[in-house]
Computed example of a mutant assay.
Amino acid sequence: MITYKVICFCCKTAFLVEEGSPKYQLYKKNMNGKFACENCDHKVYLEARKGLMGKLL
């Protein structure tokens, strides 16, 4: 199985992207892009959801 070590743009820690995952496909398309680890990805999702709910109410 092929893995790549990627640096999270948010918390600056290294995480592995494994072959077959959606992040792996994104990484293969754009190796110079910015990627977030699972924890930061979830935080960004929650912040976006909170912002959207704030606008709807």
Rank of each mutant, 00 (worst) to 15 (best):
A14Y: 10
K55S: 10
E18V: 06
T3S: 09
L16Y: 13
M31R: 14
K43I: 13
E18T: 08
K29D: 03
K55M: 10
V17D: 09
K43V: 12
M31Q: 15
E18G: 08
M1S: 01
D41P: 00
L52M: 08
K55D: 09
L57Q: 07
T3V: 04
I7M: 04
V17L: 05
Y4L: 00
P22L: 06
E19R: 08
L56Y: 06
L16E: 15
C8T: 02
N30K: 12
D41Q: 12
L56N: 04
L46T: 06
C10E: 06
Y24L: 03
K12D: 14
S21T: 15
A48N: 11
Q25F: 13
V17Y: 06
L52A: 13
K5D: 08
C40F: 11
N32F: 11
L16K: 14
Y27I: 02
M31S: 15
V6E: 01
C37F: 09
R49F: 09
K28Q: 15
G20T: 09
G33H: 08
M53L: 11
Q25Y: 14
Y4D: 01
K55Y: 07
N32L: 12
L57G: 06
K34P: 01
V6A: 00
E38A: 13
V17R: 03
D41M: 11
G54F: 04
L56G: 00
K12T: 11
C11S: 05
M1G: 02
C40L: 10
K43D: 12
Y27F: 15
L52N: 08
F15K: 01
K5Y: 02
C37P: 15
Y27M: 03
N32T: 13
K43M: 14
C11G: 03
Y45T: 09
K23A: 11
V44E: 15
V17Q: 05
C11V: 03
G51I: 00
K50Q: 10
L46P: 00
G33I: 00
K43S: 12
Q25S: 14
K29R: 15
N39P: 07
K29G: 02
